[in-house]
C-alpha cells in the first residue's frame, strides 16, 4: 500500500507543491476547517494566550510546539469547546466530526472494562469497526485485555483508535507520543501520516518533542503564550524566534530532515526512515 503512494503523482502534486512554495497562503486554497481569530485567554489575571490567529486547511497536518506551560493545551481545549476564550473566536466548519486523543486518560482499576468495550463507548460503532481500528493502530492483541492493565504505549494506540472510530474530519492529538519509546514514536508519527492519507482528514497535533514531529507535519506553530513563529518546518527551524525558544543546537539537527522531506513530497515516510537510519549509523 505504502509503496503505491509515490506512484500517484497527480494526487500528491495537486496539494503538495502549493504547500511547499506558499506555506503561508496554502489555507486560502480550500475552505479552512478551523479558524482561530484574535483569540486571547486570561485565567485569574494571567495571560495564557494572547492574540492567536491560525487556520487549518483540509488534509493539513499542523503541529503546535512550545515549552511546558506555553498554552498549547489551553488552545486545544478551546478549539475542542472545553474552555471558553476571554476574547476572540474559534470557528469550526459546521457539523465537523472531531476525533480527539487526549494527552492522558486513566481508567481506574475500579471499573472492569476491556479495551474493545472502551472503544465501543466512543459513539455509534460496531464490534467489527472496533477490531478494524485496533488493527489499524497495531493493537489487535489487546482487544480483550482489561484497560487498566495495558502499557502507556498501548494506551496511546487505544486512544488513537477511539479517535479514528469517529471517522474524523479533524483529528486533534494532544501529545500523541507521550510515554512511548523512541522506536514507537517513529512508528506512531508514521501512522499519523498514513491516517491523514487514508482518511483525508486534517490533523492538529500538540507536541513538545522537536525532532521526530518535524518530519511528519506540514506546518508548525511555535507557541509561547503568543505565536512566536509559524510556517513549514524548515522555515520555522531557521527562525530566530525558534532558536530563542528552544536553543540553536536544535536547528542543525532539523534542516537535515527537512531537505529530504520537502523535496520529495509524496515520499515523506520513506525519506524519514532513511534519515533515521543515517542517524543510527
Amino acid at each position: 500500500m505504502l509503496r503505491n503512494i509515490p506512484l500517484q503523482p497527480p494526487l500528491s502534486s495537486t496539494t503538495c507543491p502549493t504547500r511547499i512554495e506558499m506555506p503561508n497562503q496554502q489555507t486560502a486554497e480550500s475552505t479552512p476547517l478551523l479558524v482561530v481569530d484574535q483569540l486571547s485567554l486570561n485565567i485569574s489575571g494571567q495571560t495564557i494566550l494572547s492574540d492567536i490567529n491560525l487556520q487549518l486547511g483540509e488534509r493539513e497536518i499542523l503541529t503546535l510546539i512550545g515549552p511546558n506551560g506555553s498554552g498549547k493545551s489551553s488552545l486545544v481545549r478551546i478549539i475542542l469547546g472545553l474552555l471558553t476564550p476571554t476574547k476572540g473566536a474559534c470557528r469550526l466548519k459546521k457539523g465537523i466530526r472531531i476525533g480527539y486523543m487526549p494527552q492522558h486518560l486513566q481508567v481506574g482499576s475500579l471499573m472492569p472494562l476491556t479495551v474493545s468495550r472502551f472503544l465501543l463507548l466512543g459513539g455509534k460503532t460496531s464490534q467489527k469497526k472496533v477490531m478494524e481500528a485496533l488493527a489499524e493502530v497495531g493493537a489487535s492483541k489487546i482487544a480483550s485485555a482489561q484497560i487498566h492493565t495495558i502499557s502507556g504505549g498501548e494506551m496511546q494506540r487505544t486512544l488513537l483508535a477511539r479517535a479514528l472510530l469517529r471517522e474524523p474530519q479533524l483529528l486533534v492529538l494532544d501529545e500523541p507520543v507521550q510515554g512511548v519509546d523512541i522506536n514507537g514514536q517513529v512508528a506512531l508519527y508514521k501512522l499519523i501520516q498514513e491516517i491523514r492519507d487514508r482518511y483525508g482528514c486534517s490533523i492538529l497535533m500538540v507536541s513538545h518533542d522537536l525532532h521526530l514531529v518535524m518530519a511528519s507535519t506540514d506546518r508548525v506553530i511555535c507557541l509561547n503564550h503568543h505565536i512566536c513563529c509559524s510556517g513549514t518546518p524548515d522555515i520555522v527551524t531557521k527562525d530566530p524566534a525558534y532558536s530563542e525558544l528552544f536553543g540553536s543546537s536544535q536547528v542543525a539537527l532539523y534542516s537535515h530532515h527537512h531537505d529530504h522531506t520537502h523535496d520529495l513530497s509524496g515520499k515523506v515516510i520513506k525519506c524519514n526512515q532513511k534519515s533515521e537510519g543515517n542517524q543510527d549509523g
Binding site: G81, Y100, V107, G123, V172
Partner: peptide, 18 residues
C-alpha cells in the same frame, strides 16, 4: 447507561464526542 458509562470513564473525552 451508555452516556453515563462514557462520562464515568472520562468526562472531557465524552464531551468532545458529543
Amino acid at each position: 447507561w451508555r452516556p453515563l458509562l462514557a462520562l464515568s470513564v472520562d468526562e472531557e473525552l465524552a464531551q468532545v464526542e458529543g
